[in-house]
């Protein structure tokens, strides 16, 4: 594959189990394309530098910071954004445990937690910590997030 500079190219991205047409330049960041072209504004920009985790999405089952990925790298991959999650246990658990306040980091946290739950249904405290230290929450003290994710993991046991 090759894409030339300054040219826009039409592609299809598989987002939330739908084929979505996008017109992109090679240097377009996936986060921007999801938000600005597809209107999927649930993924949040917090730093565009891979530091905060607010833009975390799921690519083929793996959490990825969408600000650190070019949109063209996502072609032929299964992209899931927060808008693609419906009634999942982790979403319910976040609500029940008051695991957010301003809600801005929440989509990124939920995407990361959801992937963690899928991959490690019996995750230990160490594994939870290793995964979740990728995201910053500035409102809670992480206590409620910890309770929310553990309640889903423990219900798996």
């Amino acid at each position: 594959m090759s894409l030339s500079e300054g040219m826009k190219h039409q592609f299809y991205l598989n987002v939330n189990q739908e084929e979505r047409s996008v017109v992109i330049s090679p240097s377009d960041i996936l986060l921007s394309v999801l938000r600005e072209q597809l209107g999927l504004t649930g993924s949040k920009p917090g730093c565009y530098n891979g530091d905060c985790g607010a833009c975390t999405i799921d690519i083929n089952g793996t959490p990825i910071k969408s600000c650190l990925m070019l949109a063209i790298e996502a072609i032929d991959k299964n992209i899931t954004t927060i808008e693609g999650l419906k009634d999942t246990p982790i979403q319910k658990s976040f609500v029940e445990h008051f695991a957010f306040q301003c809600g801005y980091c929440t989509p990124g946290f939920i995407m990361n937690c959801n992937a963690l739950i899928q991959k490690h249904p019996n995750a230990s405290d160490e594994v939870i910590e290793e995964w979740l230290e990728s995201n910053i929450c500035r409102c809670t003290g992480y206590k409620e997030i910890e309770e929310a994710v553990k309640s889903v993991l423990h219900s798996n046991k």
Binding site: R35, E36, S43, T81, I82, E83, L85, F100, G103, T106
Partner: peptide, 19 residues
Amino acid sequence: RKEALDKVTGTAKYTSDHL
């Protein structure tokens, strides 16, 4: 909280989400 569902589904709108 009243806006809880919006905040866990990505539909909660913040200023920069206005396109």
